[in-house]
Amino acid sequence: MKKDISFPEVTGVKIAIAKSTNNLGESEWHAYLINKNLIELDDVLIVSKGLEKTNGEGRKTSTLRHILGTVNAQSSAPIEAISPEVFSFQNEFWLSYYIVGELFDKKFIVAPFSEFELQDIEELGLKGVYAQ
């Protein structure tokens, strides 16, 4: 059972939603995994979904599963495209990965935000919001 498994603390890993501009000058939004560790993350799996209300009522997005494989040390990887229509939702990202055969697992949440509340995402060189 899950209570019998000890999960080490996740450190040096972040998830962010950030805005970029495509070659047509249009805004594009993506969720990114940021690995600030000095070691690669293996067998990276992310499950994402959005909830209009934190109690589970209201609209929900589809649950998506992403296999990123290996994410190199001190790098980032795109997870998925994000539509601005779900910025008002609580977006959840369940992250699981291995480092040297040890399993790490953490739930990241991006609270509802607007495009006017962006901050610098230093690791990506873009504007966006970090997950908590």
Rank of each mutant, 00 (worst) to 15 (best):
A131F: 04
G25V: 09
A18C: 09
A18K: 09
I79K: 04
E52V: 10
K49W: 14
I34Y: 01
R59K: 13
I34E: 11
L45A: 02
A77T: 04
R59A: 15
A18S: 15
I34N: 03
L118F: 13
D42W: 06
K107N: 15
S27V: 10
L51T: 01
G56I: 09
N37S: 10
L95D: 03
R59P: 07
G125D: 10
E57G: 06
K3W: 04
P112G: 02
N35H: 00
I5K: 05
D43K: 05
G25P: 12
E102M: 02
F108I: 12
D120V: 06
F104P: 00
D42A: 15
S88A: 09
E123R: 02
L103W: 11
F113I: 13
S48A: 15
K14P: 10
K14F: 02
I46N: 00
N91G: 03
E52T: 11
P8T: 08
A31V: 01
L103E: 13
P84H: 01
I109M: 09
N91D: 03
V71N: 05
K36A: 11
T21G: 12
I109Y: 13
I99D: 00
F93L: 11
E52S: 11
G50D: 00
V44E: 03
I67F: 07
L68I: 11
A111N: 07
N72T: 03
N55A: 02
Q132A: 04
S83E: 14
S62Q: 10
S76K: 08
V44H: 02
E57S: 04
P78K: 01
E28M: 07
T54Y: 10
E117Y: 03
F108C: 08
H30E: 00
R65L: 13
Y130K: 09
L103P: 06
E26V: 03
E123Y: 01
D120W: 08
G58H: 04
S75F: 09
R59M: 15
L24P: 10
E122N: 12
N37H: 05
H30N: 02
V71S: 07
I17N: 14
P8W: 09
S62P: 06
F113H: 15
L124D: 04
Q90M: 12
W29L: 08
W94A: 04
T54C: 10
K106V: 09
T63A: 12
E123I: 07
V71C: 07
P112N: 06
V110I: 09
K60A: 07
E80V: 13
V71I: 06
K60E: 04
L103C: 13
E9A: 04
I46S: 01
G125I: 02
A81F: 01
K53I: 13
E117S: 09
Y98N: 14
